[in-house]
Design a protein around this nucleic acid. Sequence first.
DNA 1: TCAATAGTCAAGCAGTTGCTTAACTATTTC
DNA 2: GAAATAGTTAAGCAACTGCTTGACTATTGA
Lengths: 123, 123
Amino acid sequence: MVKYVPNYELDRIFQALADETRRSMVERLVRGPASVSDLARPLEMSLPAVMQHLQVLEACGLVRSGKSGRVRTCHIQPEGLRAAEEWIAGRRTSWERGLDRLGDYLADTPQAPDQAPENRSTS
Amino acid sequence: MVKYVPNYELDRIFQALADETRRSMVERLVRGPASVSDLARPLEMSLPAVMQHLQVLEACGLVRSGKSGRVRTCHIQPEGLRAAEEWIAGRRTSWERGLDRLGDYLADTPQAPDQAPENRSTS
DNA sequence: TCAATAGTCAAGCAGTTGCTTAACTATTTC
DNA sequence: GAAATAGTTAAGCAACTGCTTGACTATTGA
């Protein structure tokens, strides 16, 4: 059947994006490079904490940084974002194809014998 | 009422997607509804563990389920996927706009005093 | 009615995460 | 060369995760 190649990279990317602080750092870096202090300024936490978030972002390839003098400059690395986006888009299109097939099936069938489970409040 | 999706919702969605087991459950459900046992069959873990993953997926709205008789049937709920996809796409386009601006700047400027900082080799 | 099936609940445990503080190194700037 | 700036390292800690096992309920089929 389907061979699951565990994608640790996706694990790390989604994990990195699962934190509001790190997402805000990505939002900042998407507008242009920034130093660690730049990234830390709007955040209400210690500099080491910011460094640790930065390390998470670097470990999954979302961000790169380099040091010049005493300043470390960080910039975004969009490939990781694209990988995550593509995984989601792939699932969504897969789901939409399923809807198409269901539509075809319903169009070709007098009645739908398929029964939805317990009632759920469609909000 | 207000159709406001707070950011901690994104936290939970990305957190849910940060696990290979849960992503494989999403991949399965994207092809059509499945029972808890269906979801558990290809996974090498106990049924309670699968239930806990399912609860994570339901808590962030990626999956819905309902019970009919003794069978709980799960199906995907694509809005959450779309929210995550849109967050990423928004950042990516923001980054691309930045590239455009950089391109304009470079086109309007005699020489580019760009200084690429040293790259740190993360081991 | 009895046993198999499908799922659920609760406790517990090892490993991870997100933060802190304290102490430290390296680079400017005065 | 002393002080300010920018970042780094390490240790520690509470909360959270992902999993387990054991005991349990509810439904179905013979």
